[in-house]
């Protein structure tokens, strides 16, 4: 007895993980980025020089690293505002540890553990209080920022050991270490998100939380890990920042939470969850980095960059909405095709 049959080679789709990696969902964004690169190269021959590319990459490196974690959070249907507080907090903590003569590796581990713990606290509160992640992470944002201020009393912490400079300023094979670190992390998380059992659950939780719970997914535990990872990455960004500036203060990462969220959204993730990819986010990062660079190269006042970011964000979602309306119509028709007897 056959109820449903479909022609075509069923194995053609997505079997090889390489095929999945190269499959690009946000072709509109990619085309835009390519056009921008072409345009920029014509307008500014300097654009594609290694030095400019490095400037571009390093100018956005904190946001880029945080965007990886935020992508996962947003796919799961959540949001995390606290990253912009975790970043300076971690930088300040590691500064404190250095001031107390803690060895560099230990200081890094300790401060990252602390950063991760903030994510765990976020996760526990969202789970326990069943509160909206926006509010919970807004609370941790405020509180952690406050703690940073209490520690530094508004001042700057300095006195970092020489060997710590490598993290933010070192080079491997001529490539800045933070960029290398980002590439490794991006490949790792992209692979995990596509092919790892644990991270696949993120899409289920974001797509239909109720269904995820009913099929036995431990939604609470998963959420804990997601927010912990996100906080960990924000902490990493904080350590890199501290190493770059060889100091730490509460002004680090100001407003970065919204820039990071913007990147992820432009990269094709949906705030309602269940949708998004690391690949898309990377294109979003490149897109915004090029815009920022355009201001630098053209000598236009950088004040304008906020206006352009905001405008780009709105255009991106308007386009997405336009395409979604299309899909919705399609789905409704499918439902209508289904007939049951009265």
């Amino acid at each position: 007895m056959q109820l449903y049959r479909e022609s075509g080679n069923p194995m053609a789709r997505g079997v090889s993980s390489f095929g999945r990696l190269t499959k690009i969902n946000n072709s509109g964004l990619v085309v835009t980025v390519v056009l921008m690169v072409v345009g920029m190269t014509i307008a500014f021959p300097y654009f594609l020089t290694p030095i400019n590319i490095e400037t571009m990459a390093m100018g956005f490196i904190q946001e880029a690293i945080m965007a990886l974690g935020m992508t996962i959070v947003i796919i799961s249907g959540g949001i995390d505002l606290s990253v912009s507080a975790v970043l300076p907090f971690t930088a300040i903590i590691i500064g404190l540890l250095f001031n107390r003569q803690v060895a560099t590796p230990l200081a890094i581990v300790l401060s990252l553990v602390l950063a991760t713990l903030i994510g765990v606290v976020n996760g526990v509160m969202i789970n326990r209080l069943r509160a909206h992640p926006f509010i919970v992470t807004l609370a941790t944002l405020t509180a952690v920022k406050g703690v940073s201020l209490v520690i530094t009393e508004g001042g700057t912490i300095s006195g970092f050991p020489q060997e710590f400079y490598f993290i933010g300023q070192g080079r491997v094979l001529g490539i800045p270490f933070p960029v290398l670190l980002f590439v490794v992390l991006a490949v790792l998380f992209s692979h995990l998100l596509r092919n790892h059992k644990f991270f696949q659950q993120v899409y289920f939780v974001g797509g239909n939380q109720r269904a995820a719970r009913l099929s036995g997914i431990n939604v609470e535990g998963l959420r804990l890990v997601i927010y912990a990872i996100n906080s960990f990455l924000a902490g990493l960004a904080g350590i890199i920042t501290a190493s770059q500036y060889v100091s730490a203060n509460t002004g680090f990462g100001l407003g970065s939470e919204l820039r990071v969220i913007t990147t992820v959204i432009i990269g094709g993730a949906s705030l309602s969850g269940g949708k998004g990819s690391i690949g898309g986010t990377i294109w979003g990062i490149i897109f915004l980095a090029i815009i920022a660079n355009a201001f630098v190269l053209s000598g236009a006042p950088t004040y304008w960059s906020d206006v352009v970011y905001g405008g780009m964000l709105l255009i991106a979602v308007l386009l997405e909405e336009y395409m979604r309306a299309d899909r919705k119509a399609l789905r409704r028709r499918n439902w209508r095709d289904f007939l049951t007897s009265g």
Binding site: R13, G14, H196, K197, F198, Q200, Q201, Y203, F204, G207, N208, R210, A211, A212, L214, S215, G216, I217, G274, K275, R331
Partner: peptide, 19 residues
């Protein structure tokens, strides 16, 4: 309780995929 955007296989096995 299926997730529309996910494949049939992923929905069937949700988080118990062979790994």
């Amino acid at each position: 309780s299926l997730v529309p955007k996910m494949s049939i296989a992923q929905n069937v096995f949700s988080h118990r995929e062979p790994v």
